[in-house]
């Protein structure tokens, strides 16, 4: 059980690392939010799943799963809201040829 938990935790860590790399490397708000919104949620999902497994079968594990589900809804709503605000306020998406 503990080995499975650590596998999930490190898998979540890999996703969080990808999100950080995506956050720094990508040129524009839209591409960044695409990368970060996705991998952040997944990273949090696996990390919290691993921690819940580490707790074994107890009330704490259920509580961690509640946080996990909350985070799933939360991540998508927030990234959607910020990108829609960016689009609405007239931010042009990045294109390779700078006109």
């Amino acid at each position: 059980m503990v080995v499975l938990a650590s596998v999930f935790i490190f898998l979540g860590l890999v996703f969080l690392l990808i999100a950080a790399i995506g956050m720094v490397r990508l040129p524009d708000v839209y591409t960044r939010s695409h990368a970060v919104g996705l991998t952040d949620t997944w990273g949090a999902f696996f990390m919290l799943l691993g921690l819940a497994l580490y707790q074994g079968f107890s009330l704490n594990a259920v509580k961690i799963l509640v946080v996990l589900i909350l985070l799933l809804f939360l991540g998508t709503v927030i990234s959607h809201a910020t990108v829609r605000a960016a689009l609405r306020s007239g931010l042009k998406p990045w294109s390779k040829v700078q006109e």
Partner: peptide
């Protein structure tokens, strides 16, 4: 908007960090 995105990312990470520290101190 980059700043808002960054702050969202930081807060998600700090939530994970909180739960992680909880498991380290066994007061989850």
């Amino acid at each position: 908007f980059d700043r808002v995105l960054g702050l969202n990312g930081i807060s998600t990470k700090s939530i994970i960090l909180l739960v992680l520290i909880g498991t380290i101190y066994e007061r989850v």
